[in-house]
Design a protein around this nucleic acid. Structure first.
Length: 491
RNA sequence: GGUCUCGUAGUAUAACGGUUAGUACAACGGGUUUUCAUCCCGUCAACGCGGGUUCGACUCCCGCCGAGAUCACCA
């Protein structure tokens, strides 16, 4: 059986955003599950839109998501180069094949003239088709065309309008009439091919078996089919992927709607596992009620025929849910130490010089509260530096409002005196001591524990109190309790 | 305007002629004798409309309505 070969073929016009990365994920999964090859090809024939550094950004994004490619930039491959701008001669060669069979012609018609044609047709309420305005050069013999062709003269396909029927692996059986077939540009004025022509040549050269791309290409299909036919090529399978919709409205998610780059989620501390999981399952499911898929599980269960054929709305909240699930899953399965290595870039600045062992302890009691890793920055600073004492955070607290200041001070004194005598500072023992203190305080748990928690952290919330105190250590705990008692006394 | 695609709760989806239309996120309420979160339990909430076909239609057919894509020397 023929080897499955899929590809992701982005233009280096900027970062890969969340709305179009799915057309990399699905072909990747298809290639992996069949033991085939996944190719990365850079479609940089539009020099005006080329952005410096975009290729590297694309490469980094794919690597981060775990979509390693078998052929393409960096890794090379049998069909190198993988940049269209470096394959110019190849397209010219293939274009000549079309000229020789009388299926391509030179066209020097000025853009302004073409505009006139378009306006005239629109005025007549006739669909604008360039083939109704073919210039005299369309009738040149192949020899004459070949002889006169030089760089700077665009080349057009000479279409042969007819009905087309084909299968789209996602959308199903398709058919169109001759009215959509036209003379598309093959080679531009600058000597480089258009996407329409280049991708067909490259896919053929590279032996691509499946093309996955956005549904917006669906309406160009008849012209592509005509080209495959004229070039005597068997066409690959087509997967038209429905759009990911912006959170508001019904338009596809684009940079203008604030579609973030994939790398932005990376720097927020979203795990690649979570993002891949979310994106793969947006518009695809395996028919079961499973929600959490690792890359390996996706490779195993993915199937083209279960790709949804309607657009799916982008929902950032769900990404965070997946991320929380993945954080807990990874810590539970691989341990905190291993997970800690992935959090290095997300600690608050004040933690910079703290030992790893201490940060691991902090992580172990706080990880199940994280939505994104960047939450570490805002949720853990009191473990590393004494918090600023703000008495109002105690007196205005919803559980402590009812208590008088003298009462608060008494409770703190009680706590300090007792903890002073505690030698065993383990979580277990502290839990016992704190429960004991709670009983002695005669307060409700929410009241007494809130007082102690806020006194040591001045944070809106923290891990379970016995864990917080244990990690914080005896010295810091007592010092902070004392400091708060003094502050309240002087208030 | 031509051509094409899509249409189940707020969102993502299941169902593939017969179910009280299932699940997850979100929202709301409760529990886990401490906050926040996790975890657990519960509540709210959907087949765009109208015709057929059929004993029976979310499911098949037709029409309508709504939404989107495309009609570049951009991809």
């Amino acid at each position: 059986m023929k080897e499955t070969r899929t590809r992701f073929a982005p233009s280096p016009t900027g970062y890969i955003h969340i709305g179009n990365v799915r057309s990399a994920i699905y072909p990747y999964l298809v290639a992996r599950q069949t033991g085939g090859k996944f190719i990365l090809r850079i479609e940089d024939t539009d020099r005006a839109r080329f952005v410096e550094g975009a290729t590297e950004l694309i490469e980094d994004t794919l690597k981060w998501l775990g979509l390693e490619w078998d052929e393409g930039p960096i890794v090379g491959g049998p069909n190198a180069p993988y940049f269209q701008s470096e394959r110019e001669d190849l397209y010219l060669e293939w274009a000549k094949k079309l000229i020789k069979t009388g299926r391509a012609y030179l066209d020097e018609t000025a853009p302004e003239v073409i505009d006139e044609y378009r306006k005239a047709d629109n005025a007549k309420k006739v669909p604008f088709l360039y083939r109704n305005h073919r210039p005299a050069s369309a009738d040149f013999s192949p020899e004459e065309t070949l002889e006169k062709w030089q760089k700077g003269i665009p080349l057009r396909f000479k279409s042969d309008p007819k009905n087309y029927e084909w299968t789209d692996e996602v959308m199903g059986e398709m058919k169109t009439g001759p009215e959509v077939c036209d003379d598309i540009i093959l080679i531009k004025k600058d000597g480089l091919p258009t996407y329409n022509f280049a991708h067909i040549v490259d896919d053929a050269e590279m032996g691509v078996t499946h093309i996955a791309r956005g549904v917006e290409y669906l309406s160009s299909m008849p012209n592509y089919l005509a080209l495959y036919e004229a070039l005597n090529l068997e066409h690959p399978k087509f997967l038209s992927l429905p759009h990911i919709l912006a959170p508001q409205g019904n338009k596809k998610l684009g940079k203008r709607d604030g579609a973030k780059s994939v790398t932005e989620y990376k720097s927020d501390g979203v795990l690649p596992e979570a993002l891949l999981n979310y994106l793969a399952c947006l518009g695809w499911n395996d028919g079961t009620e499973k929600e959490i898929y690792s890359k390996e599980e996706l490779i195993k269960s993915f199937s083209i025929d279960r790709i949804q054929n309607s657009g799916a709305r982008f929902d950032e909240v769900k990404i965070y849910w997946y991320n929380g699930q993945w954080i807990r899953k990874l810590v539970d399965e691989e341990g905190v130490e291993k997970f800690y290595s992935r959090t290095k870039d997300f600690w608050p600045e004040v933690a910079e010089n703290e030992p790893d062992e201490y940060k691991i302890k902090v992580l172990s009691i706080i990880y199940d509260r994280l939505k994104v890793l960047a939450d570490l920055k805002t949720m853990t600073d009191y473990f590393f530096v004494d918090p600023e004492i703000k008495p109002e955070m105690i007196t205005d607290n919803k559980f402590l409002k009812k208590l008088s200041e003298t009462e608060l001070i008494e409770l703190l004194t009680l706590t300090i005196e007792r903890l002073n005598d505690v030698k065993d500072w383990s979580e277990e023992n502290l839990q016992k001591e704190l429960n004991d203190l709670l009983e002695k305080s005669g307060k409700k748990p929410a009241e007494y524990f809130s007082l102690v928690r806020i006194s040591v952290s001045f944070a809106p919330f923290s891990p379970a109190l016995h864990q917080t105190l244990s990690v914080l250590g005896r010295e810091k705990t007592l010092a902070r309790l004392n400091a708060v008692r003094t502050a309240l006394t002087n208030n």
